[in-house]
Design a binder for these strands. Structure first.
Lengths: 242, 242
DNA sequence: TCAACTATGTCACTTTCTGGCATATTTGAT
DNA sequence: ATCAAATATGCCAGAAAGTGACATAGTTGA
């Protein structure tokens, strides 16, 4: 076992079994007690808040406020986490507003510098409108999984998509659209997009897309502009309370 | 600089500057090129997908699907992230449903085993009701920051709170409540709690709490039971579509 | 007062790391 | 075809870091 792995393991054991004593750690890691203390010093150097109580009944643990190990998210997982945070923020989720923004910052910082430019403004592309009407509410269905998955990828990658859309009159048409923004009018989700077919912004209901294919073409997202054109000022925070 | 730190730095450089060549890395890390290759081998051993192109114009990078470093969240940040994820899930946020649950799992796993029991069920304590009535919508205000902050802590720690509440008739009363569940009836947030004063479950509007103080007493959350008592079946997913 | 803890110092020994050099291999450009 | 720019690996000797054993000091609760 390399030393790095041992340090990892040590941190995990401390986290999982607070109050453990050095002798026990030594046995479990298969090294001398002296080395355990050396490793502990390393962890502390690296910023882990290792606490220790001396004397009988003592032991070691990571400080409670810390507790957490490193979370290793893939880019996509981190992205969707950011989107979720954005949704919560927009919904004025009252929990931990300060922590939300700190967590957001840390996750954004984990991305390569080149991508941060794209990721930061993501939350400005999520809008909250007033709740859907009863009619919409009763007709909103679960979006097609594959279609919405592709649409999501296109949304974050800022790529143009070619998609089949079934409008309110059940007429199917194939369109090329730029997915600029998401609008939630709960429980319905809408896409605010620029429609190449019509040459103008359009609103699409998320559950009405069927066959979504990504094109290589990228676009520059202009969520405000598109939202303004489609909704006037009737969306997002400023519109609330009614 | 310890080797561990150098490995960290190396990973970050690879992430930030894809296409970098070994000679440049050696210069920047202040070690020989031979050591750079050794470090790269270590990273690969540890699971980092380091890719390399040989030959002229070649270079190294981390595989795109990876891209991300470790995110070091504090417990509170992780908690609020989980809550946000839960909210998004409950709202049927159509983006990356699969990734959301994977991310959720990873974040939960980062917590000490002892706490996972508490954290896993958190999302079952967040309920979605139908949107608020026009009357509520027009009267819902920004919750008091300090009060809701304390309420949040009590919610996740499962602690009883003593709070001042101002009811719809503007009458103030002091109560001891157990915050069992959160209910969003957008844009209003409610607390489903057991009210010690009345000895029965009650619904409280989040923006009407004023002075919230934590007590040391913990309770066992029974979100389903409390929600059932207060709302019947008219809440959460089953109630939708209307 | 004792036993159970954390914590640090020293020293000899072992392991790992490191740089330099050689060499193989792949790849794009000329 | 040849060359230059890359990654990649092997080997070696010297340097650095890690390791265990032992000693010792300090703290704490019973």
């Amino acid at each position: 076992m390399h030393r790095i792995d041992r340090l990892d393991l040590l941190a995990r054991i401390l986290r999982d079994r607070p109050g453990i004593v050095a002798a026990e750690l030594a046995r479990e890691l298969g090294v001398s007690q002296r080395s355990v203390f050396r490793d502990l010093a390393h962890l502390r150097e690296r910023g882990y808040p290792v606490e220790a109580d001396r004397g009988r009944g003592g032991g070691m643990r990571l400080h409670a406020s810390w507790g957490l190990g490193k979370v290793l998210l893939s880019s996509e997982e981190a992205l969707c986490t950011l989107l979720s945070l954005a949704v919560s923020e927009k919904l004025r989720f009252p929990m931990f507003a300060a922590e939300v923004s700190r967590a957001r910052k840390k996750i954004v910082d984990a991305f390569p510098r080149a991508e941060r430019r794209q990721i930061g403004p993501l939350r400005e592309r999520i809008l909250v409108g007033r709740p859907a009407s009863a009619v919409v509410r009763s007709s909103f269905a679960e979006p097609n999984a594959v279609a919405s998955r592709n649409m999501q990828v296109a949304f974050v990658r800022e790529q143009v998509v070619r998609a089949d859309y079934i409008n309110e009159k059940a007429v199917r048409s194939t369109r090329r659209v730029e997915p600029h923004a998401l609008l939630i009018m709960w429980p319905a989700w809408y896409l605010l997009a620029f429609d190449h077919l019509r040459g103008e912004p359009r609103t699409f209901r998320f559950d009405r897309f069927e066959r979504v294919e990504l094109e290589e073409v990228v676009f520059r997202p202009r969520p405000r502009e598109i939202a303004q054109a489609l909704l006037g000022d009737s969306c997002d925070a400023p519109a609330y309370p009614v």
